[in-house]
Amino acid sequence: MMRFVAVVAVVVFLFGPATALTAYALLAPANSACAPSGTAVGPVGSVPTALTASTTGGDVVRLDRVQLGHAATIITTGSRTQGAGRDGILVALMAALTESHLRMLANPGAYPDSTSYPHDGTGQDHDSLGLFQMRPAAGWGTVAQLMDPGYQSAAFFGGPTGPNHGSPRGLLDIPDWQQLPKGAAAQAVEVSAFPDRYAQYEPVARAILERLTTEPSTGTPGQADSPVVSSRIVFPLPAGTWTRTSGFGIRTHPETGERKMHAGTDYAAPAGTPVLALADGVVAYAGPDPYAGNLIVIDHTIAGPGGAQRVASAYAHVIDGSTAVVEGDHVNAGVQIAQVGSTGLSIGPHLHLELHPGGFDAPAIDPEPWLAAHSPTSVDGSAVQPATGCSMEATP
């Protein structure tokens, strides 16, 4: 039986030998011609330096480039495996996220020689090894084979071209696996003592697959930080948690009494309310600010009728220590990035939202007309009216 590794949002990595790790991170484009019609996966493009996404329970998962490189190996292998397709790749990513947090784990207790192969850390569950925590004793392969991410990926998918010829069973050896919930399909291969844990990683797996197989719209292809065009706009607070309290424009600051420009819109919400990324993008800044208290700035490339536009979104006054992202992180629309607070020049818990077309150094615009024009949804997909609420000018 493979082991289940409980994943937390922040992981301390114990990196093994560095040689050959990048060989798995920078892969040649995959051939998706063998995938079933309608479920084909495009080629793996740029591998970002980091990606942040949320589980179904709202836990934030942050992945680095080594982990995303292993994800690229799984995607490439799945796209070349006839019968796997997009759904099979999602199942495999969910399994690897659950079992190892997408890390190649050696097992020095069971197999001391496993540490002589490239690895990202160590595990100690029985004789389990690697991304999918496969066991040599169960017939999955030798130590040398199982310390190869490509071999483990092929073994997980299984099928007629799998290295195990159906024993142990890979995903394609499970009858009617496509009819199962994806978490149940992962469990059918993994045979874990914790069968219900795989399903929570489905949104993380989807975020990985979308990010790694979306070709950049601008910039040099293959560069890790090339922008990805985002067409989904998510309102930065969950539905039913907020009230609009102050709009964009000249006003009397409630803390200082000065008559000055208010460069964003304020939404009052209880302290601790999740703050969500407005769209897919890259974190440009996450840290202290003398006025905003704790500030997060995300750079986006937003699709629109006139073509893609660079826009920076800024989220001010978040709680100390609540920031779930760091500079350079790739985030998906709707992922939690912090919690509502009252840091800096503030008289109560609220989110101050700013939008800067062209980047954060460019002038801010009124967020409300922009949001209305881009039809934001709540993170659950329901429509949002950004201007709902009273304009009391109660928060800075």
Rank of each mutant, 00 (worst) to 15 (best):
M1P: 12
R3S: 07
V11L: 14
V11S: 14
F15K: 12
A18F: 12
T19R: 15
T22I: 14
A23L: 15
Y24P: 02
L27K: 14
P29G: 13
A33T: 15
A40S: 12
A40H: 10
V41Y: 03
P48M: 11
T49L: 13
S54F: 07
T55M: 05
G58I: 03
L63M: 12
A71P: 07
A71K: 06
A72H: 04
T77H: 03
G78V: 09
S79A: 15
Q82F: 08
G85L: 06
R86F: 10
M94N: 02
A95D: 04
L97S: 05
L102N: 04
R103A: 08
R103L: 13
R103S: 08
S114V: 00
T115P: 03
S128F: 06
P136V: 12
W140A: 04
G141K: 06
T142I: 14
V143P: 14
D148A: 11
G150V: 11
Q152H: 11
A154M: 04
F156R: 00
T161Q: 09
D176S: 06
W177M: 04
W177I: 02
Q178L: 07
P181Y: 05
K182D: 08
A184W: 05
A193Q: 12
Y198P: 05
Y201N: 03
P203G: 15
V204G: 03
R206K: 15
G219Y: 12
Q223S: 15
Q223C: 12
A224P: 15
S230T: 11
L237D: 01
L237E: 02
P238F: 09
T241N: 02
G247R: 03
G247C: 07
H253P: 00
H253M: 00
E258K: 07
R259M: 06
R259L: 06
Y267G: 01
A268Y: 02
L278H: 05
V282L: 09
V283W: 00
P290N: 08
H300W: 06
T301E: 09
Q309V: 10
A312W: 01
I319T: 08
A324V: 09
V326R: 10
G328I: 10
V335W: 02
V340C: 04
T343H: 01
G344N: 00
I347V: 11
H350T: 02
L355V: 14
G358E: 09
D361L: 15
P363C: 14
A364V: 05
A364G: 06
P367S: 12
E368H: 09
A372E: 13
H374W: 11
P376Y: 05
V379N: 08
V384E: 00
V384I: 09
V384H: 02
A387I: 13
T388F: 06
E393C: 00
